[in-house]
Write a protein that binds this DNA or RNA. Sequence first.
DNA 1: GACTATAACATTTTT
DNA 2: TGTTATAGTC
Length: 752
Amino acid sequence: MSIYDTLNDKQKEAVFHTEGPLLILAGAGSGKTRVLTHRIAYLIEEKGVNPWNILAITFTNKAAAEMRERVDNLVGFGSERIWVSTFHSMCVRILRRHIALLGYDTNFTIYDTDDQKTLMRDVCKLLQIDTKIYKERMLIGTISHAKNEMLTPEEFRLQAGGDFHQKKIADVYEEYEKQLRANNALDFDDLLLKTVQLFQTQRDVLEYYQERFRYIMVDEYQDTNGVQFELVRLLASRYQNLCVVGDDDQSIYKFRGADIRNILDFEKVFTKAAVIKLEQNYRSTANILNAANAVISHNHGRKDKTLWTDNEDGDKIAFRQFDTAFDEAEYIVSDIKEHVEKGECDYQDNAILYRTNAQSRMFEEKFVTANIPYKIIGGINFYARREIKDILAYLKTVDNGQDDLAVRRIINVPKRGIGLTSINRVQEYAAMHEKGFYECLKGADLIPDIGRGVSKLESFVALIEHFKVDAKELTLHELMQEIIDETGYIESIQAESEIEAQARIENIDELLNKVVAYEEVCEEHDEPVTLSGFLEEVALVADIDNLDENSDYVVLMTLHSAKGLEFPRVYLAGMEDGLFPSYMTVTADDPDELEEERRLCYVGITRAQSELTMTCARRRMVRGETQYNKMSRFLKEVPLELISTGNKFSGSGKSLTDHADHEEPERKTDYQMARQAFKTKAFAAVQQGKSFGKPAGGKLEYGVGDRVRHIKFGEGTVLSIVEGGRDYEVTVNFDGPGTKKMFAAFAKLQKI
DNA sequence: GACTATAACATTTTT
DNA sequence: TGTTATAGTC
């Protein structure tokens, strides 16, 4: 009995087909990860391929880690030498070694979308672009697409021809590139593009990697874009052992430049390609799968395939329409609670999927008050938080002095009396002399009209230079701690807002933990701990990478983030025309956009293993105004016999809408009761100080006039205590720093 | 230069 | 609605 006996015929065929180009069309839940991992195992164990020669590219770090682990379990040894990584981290690894050949410094920084935006603002200011006409977002998007098509600014300009607008954008593109280079920075698209350019211009480098990666596998191939295709094509062009796995029905990143033709035309580009279809679904019940099939069948221009399953019918798909998004969230949360309490499932078996991140807020409130563990994936990325970006900007400045963006971010954070005028002076001076911002700071006394600002600038430079020395002597986490301490960052955020300070400090602690974790991983793998390495890891994490299967919480995320995952119980919330499919795509004249939304719906449905609930609301608040939505057209594409609207007040043979109308009066009372519960619960939470941070017991151990001690400010006398909604606001006259207002919950004052 | 009040924009999705 | 950029005031 071998490990391959558990595979079905098609899967075996895919595993055993190791030489030459291969396209695996793998429907949702058809076991494609199993095929990929077994294929790697087969290459190593049966074909004697050196693990060193295998490259597997996935979409997220999470998928990469999972694949490595599963290969590990199959082959035991040697798997750590396989390259399993995402496109972006693979490129960074290659670029760190060779980017000098393209005229960059090896410790380049990676700009995320926020940085891009800041940079674009600067560019627009410099070129005097009217951002009313040329929106920054649009400019970034256009440039990103150009990069995905591998167009240089010059080529873009040529293509623009006589078009005034396009020529203007070409100007912006050119300047944007210039600035990136001056900052020794690459944006996400550059990581791919520069790697391709490296391969195109450096024959020997390309040959080295072609020789190394004799067997290449690409997961989620339907979501690759132009550069990614070229990258893979270049790498595989020598040995042609390229195996791509994908599902055209799950292509949902067209807006980001993914080109579905990569998968549709695979056989045209690789003429000798074999094609294997995996059509048996192992994941979902027949009802769920049939619903998915029915929905996706409304799309045109698909690769021909029909997903089938041996699984039993299972429950019908539940559908519920509510009055408001509030009711919707209420229902879903209590439904989950009910199932868990009955012992039918754990929290982690449940996922709530929605179209837009904004929808998560409502659920979050409900979960907090219901005291149910939950995890929201996406939304505001951890690394996009202000305090994290600040600290990282310090690290970037220490690591790569050319990163002007980082320097300017922190030059007056915490406040050190360096204002806009000074910054602008330096900026002008730097632009005039074509020098870096930080470089100019070092010779600040040479800058005209800088006046009394000079001493402040000099002490800032001294601080950074001090950190640079530290960087050589201290470990990474010590350096970060040093930066936090020396800059007085914690005190500064405490001073501006006590309420937020606590969360921000927790985030900073979390960042410190991540540094330590990074150091440990490096140690394990016997790799050097570098600042650049940490910063790059930080730049390339997706929020989904933080999803932990071993923690018992309900998972909330967008449909996009859910791709590649599966859950026993899935809720698709906000199934409304105008929300999903989104208003943009409904009104767009391009029918392709609606098809992409439908594929998104297909992805959502096929995430469910055994139970699927779809919900919608008649009205919901969007951007401050109430929107009235009809239920999603996608819902109507699900055959009625697969749907249950059902429960106590369901009749039979009625249309979906009729049912929902009947439901309403009943729900109202439910809703009101729930609302009542919400209020009392929320209050209880305050009392316990659990979610809002009031001191346990609710009483303070000190009163007005008492002497207290604060961890940072030292000793002082309490002037007043004001009962706030959530906490006590305490005013203390400290002996040293003077009078401070703070909240009792995290001031942690001690009576003396 | 720092702080505050107002206006403007955003919401479709993100490696 | 909520955040963030800008203008205006101290």
